[in-house]
Design a protein around this nucleic acid. Structure first.
Length: 572
DNA sequence: GCCGTTTTCGGCCCGACTGTTTTCAGTCG
């Protein structure tokens, strides 16, 4: 069983225990443990195998360590099974419906025997809910609406989609005279790969006007909640947007609060409490008196003797401890990027010519760009066979004569075949500056076979970078089952690298795997996989994901000048 | 159920909004 599955079971248990009315701190303890497990880079099973002590992990004590090792060893989670014996597991689905928390779910279950969204819909249709205490007409109407909409997708949206929706709304807000400062906080600001809703923080001396402006945004489909300082709307796209208006003096505290993550905030508030202080969205307080010098996020951190912590790090994954020890990473920025190592042209499935790509890369201030068209196994992408690739290499030679100020690198995105061989013979591979290698077929191999396939490919001395290492497409296709840790170990031993693919629907390596790569000393390439000149702009998403993985410029291949890079790409 | 420079017990983040209530519980972030 893998970390995400174990975490999932702990989350389910917490949910069910909460419905049963268990001690809320015990419930929280299970949730904290779930979060710790899903944030681990290394498989917990492997940690146990090498004799690691799980109680060293935050939020995991003797009891939970025992439970986890039993789950790993037996595949069974006894406590969860016991609870699911008492309560139907499907109750967990009800908790995803807004307005239904543990208390009301318990009431539905005990009074009406409702255990699932479908049963809930039936009971509403039969008019049974109105008899229950705490279920008024408006709540029932809201639930009905959600149940109707539930069939429609209300998943988290990809960061790029949230960006176009959010920046438009933000620009609209900033046009109002009453809005002094405004920013999109939340997971958007932390650059998570997906965003559940837009959390917007506004500083204003006239909150009512700022609020009115928000509600008046033309793309608002529905006002879900509205108070004097806080409102929630549903945009026509289906994405939810929350607005919070504060006085300018509270802007830093509000931004900190609404950027989260929740876990980061809780950790900060715990620190505040230990110093006899209180931190909330309005500022830092001793007793009821606001402390001066808490107007910005940086000032608030410094009140706790911490340096500024970048939003991408605020996940309570050790950043507070690192800040305290003055060991925060100096995160890579878009400005550090000196080139793009994965770009397609019209020769395979891209849109533009090599010359156009080179000019666009140069315009972005890059020192180099690699041409990486698909190879012939990927026929759907018009992949290049050795003869066509050789012609392309000749074209690059000619362009190198005429195009100055940027190095055009010879490469290809080479298919890793089903048996782990590469899709080009060695005598062609040796003509390339380096090789980007990737899986585009047989996604559903079992974990050991898929891993062995990639390891075999890496044995080829011309293999340089593993592109989109898990093959996931966010909201469309799951990652293939592969042991990234083992691949990283092999990459370290053989001098290979892994890619952080900047396409908004890919973004793999994920943040957690990127951090694991860094910890294991494997450098990464942040590459756009662009299929047009415009696609080069996806770099910012890749950089965001890298930053979430604690990656610094020194960890990134394409932050190096070409002479350095050349040395790193050469395998002995 | 976890945790500890207020340490082995007694804490555990905190405030806004809704709806149903008639002073507040439940939910949410």
């Amino acid at each position: 069983m893998h970390n995400s599955e174990i975490a999932e079971e702990f989350y389910r248990l917490a949910e069910l225990l909460e419905i049963e009315g268990a001690n809320s701190f015990r419930v929280r303890a299970y949730r904290n443990a779930a979060r710790t497990i899903e944030n681990l880079g290394e498989d917990v099973a492997r940690m146990l195998a090498r004799g690691a002590d799980l109680t060293d992990l935050p939020g995991i004590g003797k009891d939970l360590a025992g439970k986890i090792s039993k789950i790993v060893n037996t595949g069974h989670f006894e406590l969860l099974e016991e609870v699911e014996h008492r309560l139907p597991a499907s109750l967990v689905e009800l908790s995803t419906i807004p307005g239904l928390g543990p208390k009301r779910i318990k009431c539905l279950h005990e009074e009406l025997g409702i255990n699932s969204p479908a049963q809930l819909a039936e009971a509403i249709a039969a008019g049974k809910l109105e008899e229950l205490p705490g279920f008024g007409g408006r709540l029932i109407a809201k639930i009905t609406q959600t149940l109707d909409r539930h069939k429609k997708d209300q998943r988290r949206v990809r960061l790029a989609a949230a960006e176009s929706l959010g920046e438009d709304l933000l620009a609209f807000l900033k046009h109002a005279g009453a809005v002094r400062q405004a920013e999109i906080a939340g997971s958007y600001r932390r650059r998570r790969d997906t965003v559940g809703d837009l959390d917007i923080v506004v500083a204003s001396d006239w909150p009512a006007e700022a609020m009115a402006r928000f509600i008046a945004y033309p793309k608002v489909a529905e006002v879900v909640a509205e108070g004097p300082t806080r409102a929630t709307v549903l945009l026509r796209s289906g994405l939810q947007a929350d607005l919070r208006v504060v006085e300018p003096a509270s802007y830093g505290a509000a931004l900190l609060y609404f950027t989260g993550s929740k876990a980061h905030n809780i950790a900060l508030r715990g620190m505040a409490a230990k110093r006899g202080l209180k931190l909330n969205e309005y500022g830092v307080f001793r007793k009821r008196r606001p402390l001066p010098g808490a107007a910005t996020e940086a000032e608030i951190y410094s009140l706790f003797d911490l340096p500024y912590i970048e939003p991408e790090l605020r996940e309570d994954r050790g950043e507070i401890e690192a800040a305290r020890a003055r060991r925060l990473p100096k995160l890579v920025t878009l400005d550090d990027i000196r080139g793009d190592l994965h770009v397609h042209t019209e020769a395979s499935d891209g849109r533009d010519t090599i010359a156009e790509i080179a000019a666009a890369a140069k315009a972005r201030g890059y020192a180099y760009v690699a041409i990486t068209d698909h190879t012939h196994h990927l026929t759907v992408a018009n992949g290049l066979d050795p003869a066509r690739l050789k012609r392309q290499l000749g074209e690059i030679d000619r362009l190198r004569e005429s195009v100055h100020g940027i190095h055009i690198l010879k490469s290809a995105e080479i298919d890793i075949l089903d048996d782990g061989r590469l899709d080009l013979p060695d005598d062609v591979l040796k003509e390339l500056d380096f090789a980007v290698c990737a899986i585009h077929s047989q996604f559903d191999l079992p974990r050991d076979k898929q891993t062995a396939r990639i390891l075999r490919a890496m044995e080829n001395p011309y293999f340089t970078i593993l592109a989109h290492p898990t093959g996931r497409l966010i909201n469309a296709r799951d990652a293939y089952d592969v042991d990234i840790e083992q691949i990283l170990r092999a990459a370290k031993a053989r001098g290979c690298y892994l890619e952080i693919n900047a396409q908004p629907e890919r973004l793999d390596l994920t943040d957690i795997h990127a951090r694991l790569a860094k910890e294991m000393g494997v450098k990464v390439a942040i590459s756009t996989d662009a299929h047009s000149t415009a696609g080069l702009d996806y770099m910012r998403y890749g950089v965001g994901q890298a930053r979430r993985g604690w990656i610094e410029a020194k960890d990134v291949l394409n932050c190096r000048p070409w002479t350095d890079l050349k040395r790193l790409l050469a395998r002995s």
